[in-house]
Amino acid sequence: MNHHFTLPNSGHNYDAKASKMGMWLFLYTELILFGGLFLVYMVYRSLNQDAFLLASFNLNVWMGTANTIVLLTSSMTVAMAISALQKGDSKKSIFLLWMTILAALFFLVVKYFEWSAKFEHGLFPGMDHFNQLPNGEKLYFNLYFFMTGLHGLHVIVGGIFIVIVVFKIKSGKVNKDRYQLLENSGLYWHLVDLIWIYLFPLFYLIH
């Protein structure tokens, strides 16, 4: 008598559907997290309209536009990477993921230059120039650094996840039949893009 014992998860320890639902549940909390910050922004902007307008002139619209286009493009490459792996073309998938990582780095480099310029002008909360600003402009820069900073943190985390996925595809742990980790990382990356879609007009395009 050789009884075959089957685990509820059929012994594979892999449940793509549950994994995906878990990722989406996490993304909902992310939406509410940034949603709360957007509410704070909305209230303070409505109370300090002219100050927000003045402060926004310190940002470079073209750098923001370039970063928007870069993020949208990286969203496309990561979505294509999923299609490629589903079709079994892991080489193309890896190439597209490296393109995504390149875009993430480009985004961060642009952000670095933007933030450096603000530091030089003493606009970071607590610096000399910042301390002399009227309250409305202080609020704008507090929100600017907090929200783009939190978003930048998400870019870094998303990029790290995609690097991990690249190595897992190389080692065969993520493959044509088992690509949920790639899909989840892609979902996270799209969320990063989604949030930037709102940050861009709210901070750069006040005119």
Binding site: A16, L72, T73, S75, M76, A79, M80, I82, S83, Q86, K87, K176, D177, Y179
Partner: peptide, 15 residues
């Protein structure tokens, strides 16, 4: 995994 695979063309169009 017999899921819908989005074509490259559709992704490009979205972009």
């Amino acid at each position: 995994h017999a899921e819908h695979i989005t074509s490259y063309r559709e992704h490009f169009g979205t972009w």
